[in-house]
């Protein structure tokens, strides 16, 4: 049952992403992408990572995509963006390259050399918190300072300077 759910969600994710990257209007692309991220969040939940699933919905599908939407609406990109739509000339080489990457990945996966079978039990929320604060304490410091400087940078570039 859960396996079928996984494949269903995987299909939704891939289709949503394909529609997002072929859509010429950025607003529609964002909406497709949000639906793709929702099903990805459900996949994270199935893979025993409920916290990551929650954050995927809150941060990605919520905050980041809303930020995109906000900027697109504010700058009114979609209307003037028609002329920028890539034609077949852009699509063909790009698809070729992406196809090569996909083929290489597929070949490597088919080639075997699999990681040893791991533990059966999934990491719990308790494990997650312990790992986060006991082993990767400094990562929190780095990332929090980075988020602070994202604010600093955004303010610096957003400030209207007087004469």
């Amino acid at each position: 049952m859960e396996a079928y759910l996984f494949y269903l969600l995987a299909a939704v994710t891939v289709i949503g992403t394909v529609l997002a990257i072929t859509e010429k209007h950025p607003v529609h692309a964002i909406v497709y992408l949000v639906s793709s991220f929702f099903s990805l969040a459900a996949i994270f939940f199935l893979l025993a990572a409920p916290l990551i699933a929650m954050f995927e919905v809150i941060i990605y599908a919520g905050a980041v995509m809303v930020l995109f939407m906000f900027v697109i609406m504010m700058l009114d990109v979609g209307r003037s963006g028609d002329g920028l739509r890539p034609g077949l000339r852009q699509w063909l080489p790009a698809m070729l390259l992406a196809g090569v990457i996909l083929a290489l990945l597929g070949m490597m996966l088919a080639h075997g050399g699999w990681p040893a079978p791991g533990a059966g039990a999934a990491a719990t929320l308790r494990d997650f918190s312990l790992t986060l604060f006991r082993q990767h304490g400094v990562a929190i410091e780095i990332i929090s300072l980075q988020l602070l400087f994202a604010v600093v940078g955004a303010l610096y570039f957003g400030k209207r300077r007087g004469p």
């Binding site: 990572a49 990551i52 990681p115 791991g118 494990d127 312990l130 990332i143």
Partner: peptide, 21 residues
């Protein structure tokens, strides 16, 4: 999930924070 450790989930969380910045 495969290894039963939480390291990967921590990394995923950090990616999320990094990319939003």
């Amino acid at each position: 999930r495969h290894w039963g450790t939480a390291d990967g989930q921590v990394f995923a969380l950090m990616i999320m924070a990094m990319t939003s910045a």
